[in-house]
């Protein structure tokens, strides 16, 4: 009797694992993950310096800021929106947090919080323009791209903010268990937002909004409030990415993040998100950012001139989207 019961439990467990394994293998993130593994193996074989733990940690540290900003814009893209103000919010909030720390002697934690709140507010303003004034996200965030960058220049008069000291530097230059802090932060944020998107009602509604906005509205969901939330959270994450970068470099620059929006969006697209909305995962975005980080690192390690970098990344984006289209057509 007891043996029979045990057998049933084991069968149930193995069925669950089988189902879970199949769902993982069939997921788009897994395909992208395989691409990343192939890239790593190829680099492992051709470039001995790539194999060092130091190099791998450095790659992960470098792409972690793109990944954190990428998680923010993943939420936006899942709703069917777009955010072009990533780089400018990244630059402005990096400057705000470092100025708060250096010029106003505010301790590190509140200074970082001020930067994050500023990012959230800028994101909220994006959302208000989209929801209340019916501006297309492209236009609203294009406006914010200019406005935020301009504010960064105005408050710094073009000068970098220098003089960062230990407290705030830990965010970008510190280590926990010999692993750089930015990597830990990326992992924690990725876990939080994976749970948020997949296990909470609000997360499910964000997918629903991107899949079919009208149907979501008719079902009684306040889509305006969802959009405001998504753009604000996006702003907070771009800000976090910008503050970590300022800390990593030890300087707040008004020019920081120029063009980062394209890198962050590219990471999301490579990670399998659909620009028409309704599809995208946090894991995919992390892998997309990792692929871009590995590519950049590979081009340097192989002494290939940087002129080829954009060429290669461009092809990776195109191939990722073509593969995704083929998968959708097959379904």
């Amino acid at each position: 009797m007891v043996d029979q019961r045990e057998q049933t439990v084991v069968e149930k467990g193995s069925n669950f694992l089988k189902k879970w394994g199949l769902s993982v293998i069939r997921s788009n993130s897994f395909r992208i993950f395989i691409v990343m593994v192939i890239m790593c193996v190829a680099m492992w074989l051709v470039s001995p310096p790539f194999r060092t733990a130091n190099n791998l940690l450095s790659v992960a540290k470098n792409f972690s800021t793109y990944a954190i900003a990428g998680i923010g814009v993943t939420l936006v893209i899942i709703t069917g929106g777009i955010d072009l103000s990533i780089g400018s919010i990244f630059g402005l909030t990096g400057v705000i947090a470092t100025m708060a720390f250096v010029k106003f002697n505010i301790p590190a934690v509140p200074a970082v919080l001020i930067g994050l709140i500023a990012g959230g507010l800028l994101g909220l303003i994006n959302g208000v323009f989209i929801v209340k004034f019916n501006l297309p996200p492209f236009i609203a965030t294009l406006g914010m791209l200019s406005i935020a960058r301009s504010i960064a220049y105005i408050i710094t008069k073009g000068y970098p903010v220098v003089g960062l000291s230990k407290g705030i530097l830990f965010l970008g230059q510190g280590e926990i268990l010999k692993i750089p802090t930015p990597i830990w932060l990326m992992v924690v944020i990725a876990i939080i937002f994976s749970i948020f998107l997949n296990k909470t009602i609000t997360g499910r509604r964000i997918y629903a909004l991107g899949g079919n906005e009208e149907a979501t509205k008719i079902s009684g969901i306040n889509t305006d409030r969802l959009k405001l939330l998504v753009y604000s959270v996006g702003g907070v994450l771009y800000a976090f990415s910008g503050i970590i970068t300022a800390s990593k470099l030890g300087v707040g620059q008004p020019t920081a993040g120029n063009g980062y929006e394209l890198d962050a969006i590219a990471a999301v697209v490579i990670g399998g998100a659909s620009l028409t909305g309704g599809a995208g995962t946090i894991a995919g975005t992390i892998i997309g950012a990792a692929i871009m980080g590995i590519l950049r690192n590979a081009l340097v390690l192989l002494s290939i001139r940087s002129h080829w970098q954009q060429f290669v990344i461009g092809w990776v984006i195109l191939i990722a989207v073509i593969l995704d289209q083929m998968r959708v057509a097959k379904k």
Partner: peptide, 9 residues
Amino acid sequence: IIVEDYTRA
């Protein structure tokens, strides 16, 4: 990133 990566390699 470029200076660090190239010097490490």
